[in-house]
Amino acid sequence: MNRSLIISSVLHGALILITAMSLPFLAKKPLDIPPIVSVELIQIAEKTNIPFAPKAKKIIEEKKKKKLKEKEKKLVSEQAPPKKVKKTKTKTVVSLDEKKEKIDNQTPEAVPLPDKTVKKIETKKENKQNPDKLDQEVKQVSEFEKKEFVDLDNIAKLIDKAKEDTAEVVKKNNDITQDQDKNIVTSGLTLSEEDALKAQIFGCWSIPLGLPYNEDLLVRIKLMLEPDGSVAKTEILDHARMNKPGQGFYKVLAESALRAVKLCQPLRVPTTGYERWKELQLNFDAREMLEG
C-alpha cells in the first residue's frame, strides 16, 4: 500500500513537473505593448477633389466633352476589334501615342502602318464587302472569337450605350476635380515631349537682364508650325503692349522671346500627331529668373 502510494506520488509529481515545463506561456514575460494610437478615418475627398473655379471648370468641361467623344471612338474599336487586325497589332511594336493615333485617328497624318498590317486591314474590308468570304473567315475562328466580332449595327448600339454610360458618369461627377484633370492633359503634349521642347528653348532664350522684376513679365507667343518643327508664323498675343508708352521692357522681352524661337527652330516637336501641335502657344515668363 505504502509502496503504491509512493509510486503514485512520484508519478503525480513527475506529471506536474512535465506539465509545468511544457507550458511555455508560464515562463513568458508580458508583451511590451506600445501605447495605443487612435486612428480616425476621415473623408479626404473634400480636400483633394477641390472643385475648379467656374471659368476653369467651363474650359475643362469643354475639354472633357472632347475627351469623351474620343473615348467613344476608342470604345468602338476596342470593344469590337476584328480578330485579324488585333493579331497584327500584337505583332507590331507600337508606342502608346501611335496606338492612340490608330484608334482615334483616321486622318492622313496618322502613322503609316507596316505593310503587313495594311494588307490585313484590306483583307478585312474585302470581308465586309463579300459576305461569303466573311462567313468562311468566321468559321475559321473559335466560338469565343466569333462572339467578339460585332457587326456595324452592334457598333452603333455600343456607341449609344457608351454615350449613355458616360453621360451617367458625367451626371454623377458634375463637379470636375483637379484629380480628374490629369486625364484631360493627354490631349496636349506628353510630359517628355513638353520637357524636350522646354529644354531646347531654355538654351536659346537669352533673358534681357535689365528688365524690372516687379513688372508683368509674361509674353505669350502663338506659333504656327510646319510638320518638321520649323516656324511658319509667329504672333505675339498681347501685341498692343509692344508700343504702349512705359512698356518698353515688354517690347524688349517679346523681341528676345521671338529671337529664341527663331534661333531654336526647327523645334523639337513630336514626330507624330501634327494636327495636335501644329498650333502652339509659348508663354515666356522671365519673373522667376529675374527675381532669382
Binding site: E62, K63, K66, E70, K73, D104, N105, Q106, T107, S187, G188, L189, E194, L197, K198, I201, F202, G203, C204, W205, S206, I207, L209, K222, S256, A257, A260, E275, R276, W277, E279, L280, Q281, L282, N283, F284, D285, A286, R287, E288, M289
Partner: peptide
C-alpha cells in the same frame, strides 16, 4: 465625317540662359 478639334497647347518657358548676347 469624323471631326476633331484640339485645344491650343500651351508651354510655359520660365527659364532661359544668362549668357551674354552675341
Amino acid at each position: 465625317i469624323p471631326f476633331k478639334a484640339f485645344a491650343l497647347i500651351e508651354v510655359d518657358i520660365t527659364r532661359g540662359n544668362l549668357n551674354p548676347l552675341p
